[in-house]
Write a protein that binds this DNA or RNA. Sequence first.
DNA 1: TTTTTTGCAAACAGTTTGCAGCACA
DNA 2: TGTGCTGCAAACTGTTTGCAAAAAA
Lengths: 187, 187
Amino acid sequence: MAAKRAAAAAHGSGETQGESIQGSLKERGIRLTRQRQILLDLIDKSGKHLDAETLFQLAREQDPKLNRVTVYRTLKMLKQGGLVDELDLMHLGGDQHYYETRMKQEHAHVICLRCGKVEEFFGEPLMRLRRQVEQNMGFHVLIARTEIGGYCVNCQSQRLRELAEVAAGPSSEPNSGEHIQPRQRKG
Amino acid sequence: MAAKRAAAAAHGSGETQGESIQGSLKERGIRLTRQRQILLDLIDKSGKHLDAETLFQLAREQDPKLNRVTVYRTLKMLKQGGLVDELDLMHLGGDQHYYETRMKQEHAHVICLRCGKVEEFFGEPLMRLRRQVEQNMGFHVLIARTEIGGYCVNCQSQRLRELAEVAAGPSSEPNSGEHIQPRQRKG
DNA sequence: TTTTTTGCAAACAGTTTGCAGCACA
DNA sequence: TGTGCTGCAAACTGTTTGCAAAAAA
């Protein structure tokens, strides 16, 4: 996988939460091209965590000429501008990155290592953690990322069921919601 | 060839964690080859977060024939065996992964995006978070990873100083401790 | 001897770069 | 109309795989 430089970009820390990504870009004098419009729309609307390739596939449905490279460049721009956050989601689906708009409240990502379901956890421990790091270490926090891997409720009971009826085939009905699929290489 | 040395004895790091990695492996019936011995020693001793390439370079000093692939395979094995944790450290140094032994207490990694210093934060918010995720969501947590990016105390004052004396050259004395260097590509 | 494990070369995934031409402000 | 943006091809990084030879148990 490729290397990317995690440039210490100037994330405007106390930013006004109400603005759309599009608005923010315009303010920064960044051109709002057709391609970018498509990509921003997708990122903005899709509640899911998209990776570059998925985003590319979706974008191509609207503009078949749109190039993969443009997706990467746009994502990089948004990341450096502090408009999207980059996630790894425990690398369950491979080594690609996932993106979400940065407008939301701070949260952890809770990933089921069995079914790939991704849930978000909001709560005071996260604020507390941030505050403590800032106070105890004098650190100025710009980005915080928490990812938790394990087994979701469904998969836990699922597993018990499977252990019980050893002979039966897989009858698992996956949870609703967002899932990333554990990736396996060729071979 | 150099015989195997039961290195479990003396590791100068004052931690008597109970089990050594080597011990755990033996229990699992995994062969303790010369190469693995070297790699395990390095991972165990080095307090730092090593990536595969660095580990490879260090290992090669002891055994010039040792191959990069062996490093990856060993790391994969250790990861799957739950003996080491895989970190991203905010991708500051690129997209490679970093590794640390899993024996320690749960902690967050706090990375300065300017000087690359990596510090560890231990504290109750982390336990609290884990507990809440388990209780509120019925989730069974296996791995938790928190990475925080921002500016360390030194770099904050450093920045002020730089803004003040615009003309002067870089006089920054980096912090002591572990640093990863923000990487830039060719070109 | 039997079963792993290694080394080597080559493939692979995800991402980035260089450059000529196109398009937005 | 000029500067920024796009598409294309090709490079690049980090990692994995297939297979024969080497080394543990």
